[in-house]
């Protein structure tokens, strides 16, 4: 059985003025996520990822279309869906700051029907698993953003639901915590959970997801497995080079067909090109500039992201 199926799922909001055009947050989204899959939702801010997560967690109604979770329609049978979905929203919201981590988790566990020794054992296990055991009795509003994020994750896992939705789960986490989160997801996948991971972190998506869906302007642009999706963007290629003089870097930006020149902290550069011809031109340009440390790797997921999602800069819809 598919864990999640959406058909022509649409969510729009009326314009602020009566004559304004409605804002379409999700536009006829068709998506199928299989049981046991880790599925990435990738897209810029305002693309519609969180809207999709909210509809699947029943706190937002679709305007039209359908969404089913393990066969239960989110609109018709929300209570059935709530029993089998755990949601982790990012940020500092969603917790009682005046209570401790343990008190928060006990409350949420009770809402999912846990009680007595089972509740206490589950809460203790999650505090341990998310590294919060030492701070279990501290007030949440005295904790760092990263700690709060861990607590969010613990709350999402409290009922051990078969479908877990993580919306920006590593926002605010330090690299070690982010690594621990990845280990946790791997562990959850091993236990048969289906996971939806909405993220901006391409490395995270590449490391964790079986398949990814790119969303932009409320539309699904592509859904593929994390390896095959590179084939969708054959026109994207990349050249990596080391010890490139600064004026050569400037010159590269002027080569026709160069999409971007990224500079890493170690001084190496990564040039994204739009065709094989451009790649050849870039290689020639670099060789003529005396650069000899060159490499032409295939596109990463981040490259695909940049290619599929229009470059909108800082703009958010």
């Amino acid at each position: 059985m598919s864990a999640v199926v959406t058909e022509a799922l649409t969510r729009s909001y009326p314009g602020k003025r009566s004559d304004a055009t409605p804002f379409v947050a999700l536009n006829h989204v068709d998506l199928r996520i299989e049981e046991g899959e880790v599925h990435g939702l990738l897209g810029p801010n305002g693309a519609g990822k969180t809207t999709l997560c909210r509809i699947l967690s029943t706190v937002l109604c679709p305007t039209s279309g359908t969404a089913r979770v393990f066969g239960h329609d989110v609109d018709i049978a929300p209570n059935e869906v709530r029993r089998i979905v755990g949601v982790v929203f990012g940020g500092e919201r969603g917790l009682y700051g005046r209570l401790s981590s343990r008190q928060n988790l006990r409350f949420w566990a009770a809402l999912y029907g846990l009680h007595g020794s089972a509740l206490r054992a589950r809460v203790d296990e999650l505090l341990e698993r998310t590294g919060l055991a030492d701070r279990a009795n501290d007030r949440v509003d005295t904790m760092s953003r990263g700690m709060k994020q861990r607590l969010h994750i613990a709350r999402g896992l409290v009922a051990d639901p078969p479908l877990l939705i993580f919306d920006e789960p590593t926002a605010g986490l330090d690299p070690i915590s982010a690594r621990d989160f990845r280990a946790l997801v791997t562990d959850l996948r091993g236990n048969g959970h289906t996971i939806i991971l909405a993220t901006h972190d391409m490395t995270e998506a590449e490391a964790l997801c079986d398949r990814v869906t790119f969303i932009d302007h409320g539309r699904v642009i592509a859904t593929e497995n994390t390896i095959g999706i590179r084939n969708l963007v054959a026109r994207v290629d990349a050249v990596e080079a080391r010890q490139v003089p600064p004026d050569t870097v400037v010159g590269l930006r002027g080569v026709p067909g160069v999409r971007a020149v990224e500079q890493a902290a170690d001084g190496s550069i990564r040039v994204l090109t739009d065709s094989e011809a451009t790649t050849r031109a870039v290689l020639t340009f670099l060789l003529e500039a005396g650069v000899s440390q060159l490499n032409t790797p295939g596109p990463t997921l981040a490259d695909v992201y940049l290619s599929l999602i229009e470059d909108r800069g800082m703009a958010v819809r």
Partner: peptide
């Protein structure tokens, strides 16, 4: 939001 997402 979290309470509405719970089966309670």
């Amino acid at each position: 939001e979290a309470q509405l997402g719970a089966p309670a």
